[in-house]
Amino acid sequence: MLKSMLKIGKMRWQEYNIYPSNFYLFTLNRIVEVVVYIFVWQAIYNQTGNAGGLSIEQMVTYYILVATLRPIILWGCNEDMAYSIRNGQIHKELLNPISYFQYYFGMEIGEFAFATVVGLATFVCCAIFWKVMIPASILHFLLFIFIILLSVPITFSLQMIVGTVGFYSNSIWGMQILRTAIISIFSGIIAPITLFPQWFQTLNNFLPFKELIYTPINIYLGQISLNEIGIIIIKQIIWGILLYMLAKFFFNHAVKKVTINGG
């Protein structure tokens, strides 16, 4: 089963690499996405000597790490899933000897691998143009990686939830953009969470998104104590399980609908 999933992941990776241009274009896009943010903060820093309470190096590093993590957090196979539902391909996928979730988790592994490579390339390119801070310590760096790995079940479950909408609607495009927008706001992609109003920060504490971008970057920068990191890890595991169960429940419900009343 694990072998099948790894094989699926590898195939997904191969699919991406059939067109070498993909890699360059995706990396270029990631850089373009972040350029504006960095220049805006630099301008503010030059005016006021302060960039939202952070030093300019911290702010620049923050956004470069956002560009690095963004594909890892946002990419996935929910559109493939919706497509398979729409054109009936799902019938074949439901006849696989591994479960539908395992099949798509395999794809997610491939996505994750490719997104990581694009993220790293983005990081390297950005590091040429701007000064990037190194991690606070090796331990902080390892914890940074660990927290990112822990976010995989969360992002995968979100992918599956959006993909499952394909059973009910012809186009998941709207849901897809909504998912991206929600993650962008709540995870800290557009700006560090501390720059948001207090009520928003309070609300955000009850949601799982902050741990996808904002928290790992702050661990990287050494802004979070080890005790806090322990709590964050527990919180993330609980969110992963909850969201996975929700995704599974939603999917099973949708499949039941299809198996009872045809495709």
Binding site: S4, I8, M11, Q14, G88, K92
Partner: peptide
């Protein structure tokens, strides 16, 4: 409807 992966060589699907 096919179970073969569209962008990949046939043999890859067989291996899967």
């Amino acid at each position: 409807k096919t179970q073969l992966w569209w962008d990949l060589p046939v043999i890859e699907s067989f291996r899967l």
